[in-house]
């Protein structure tokens, strides 16, 4: 009978403890915890969402209160500027943003820096703004690598159209610049058109068809940002001899498997997010970053490698 009574008492205590623990399930942070806001261009279940995941995952075990904001409209610089100013008004301790070459945007970042808010640029660096830290691809070098892969897959002979994101994004301009530098010594590789898809799938398809129709001599398409690869993976068959894209995600890898693409230039976007948070934690702990610019690597994922890997499995 004593055992029964003890078990009964234990059950009640357990329930009360569960109740209390649930009641006191408060945040691990407090008013002294540094607040970090990441304002990312969009949440697309792709490139930027991987960066966002890297940021949030890295922050889980660190004394940082991190949140991610995105504009209602994808890549809307005005809304992103507004979000930066809102975070400035909220007196956050650090901002993680993409570098966008827009005066209002840069002015908002300047306001943040003037209030002592740390500014970390991720993915895209800005030449006109002195950020505290840049974490991301060395876009010019990545462009050069893409150029070398272009020469490799086309045998040094191709009429090329480049599909970029939007005007005013230095990272994309740097990649295009890098491609140009790489093919400088290949006169038979000519860049005939550069189009901007506005990071929009419908625009990607529109530009794709327009290029095929207006410039039938173009046989190679190079996408220098992720939306183009993500969208073109849905094609039943390629309208170009060669398609090379940036950024790996489920769709672009599927396109590679289906033979639509020759290869994908993969950035370490998840790692970028992690590094941003690790560096900010170091800033709040030790007072400084490791260095002003931290470049993450890029890797070429070719169709052949995928097939070898599949056979290996």
């Amino acid at each position: 009978m004593r055992k029964t009574a003890a078990a009964l008492l234990l059950l009640v205590l357990l329930l009360l403890c569960v109740g209390c623990s649930r009641q006191n399930q408060a945040s691990v942070h407090n008013t002294q915890t540094p607040r970090v806001s990441a304002i990312l261009p969009h949440h697309d279940d792709g490139y930027w969402s991987f960066i966002g995941d890297g940021i949030l995952d890295a922050a889980k075990n660190l004394p940082l209160d991190v949140k991610i904001d995105t504009p209602n409209l994808n890549y809307n610089v005005e809304q992103m500027t507004e979000l930066i100013l809102q975070q400035v008004a909220a007196q956050v301790d650090a901002l993680i943003v993409q570098g966008i070459d827009d005066p209002e945007y840069i002015a908002a970042l300047e306001t943040a820096r003037a209030q002592g808010i740390g500014v970390v640029l991720v993915d895209t660096d800005l030449s006109g703004f002195q950020a505290d830290l840049y974490v991301g691809t060395d876009n010019r070098e990545a462009g050069r690598q893409m150029g070398r892969r272009l020469i490799e897959v086309t045998g040094g002979r191709a009429n090329v159209a480049i599909l970029s994101g939007d005007v005013g994004y230095p990272n994309l301009e740097q990649r295009i610049q890098g491609i140009r530098e790489a093919i400088r010594n290949c006169p038979e590789i000519r860049i005939l058109r550069i189009e901007y898809d506005k990071y929009d799938a419908m625009t990607v398809m529109e530009k794709y068809n327009d290029i095929r129709k207006s410039n039938p001599e173009i046989d190679t398409l190079v996408g220098v940002e992720g939306t183009s690869g993500q969208t073109l993976s849905q094609l039943k068959e390629s309208g170009f001899r060669h398609i090379l894209v940036f950024d790996a995600n489920d769709e672009s890898i599927s396109g590679l498997k289906n033979g639509l693409f020759d290869g994908i230039m993969c950035q370490q976007n998840y790692h970028m997010g992690q590094v941003c948070i690790q560096q900010l934690n170091q800033l709040f702990t030790d007072g400084s970053f490791s260095q002003e610019k931290i470049y993450t690597s890029v890797d070429w994922m070719a169709r052949e490698e995928l097939e070898v890997a599949a056979h290996g499995e």
């Binding site: 408060a26 945040s27 942070h29 407090n30 915890t33 607040r35 209160d65 949140k67 975070q87």
Partner: peptide
């Protein structure tokens, strides 16, 4: 005691 990022902001 009941920290919330949104309220803090």
């Amino acid at each position: 005691a009941s920290y919330s990022r949104e309220v803090m902001d």
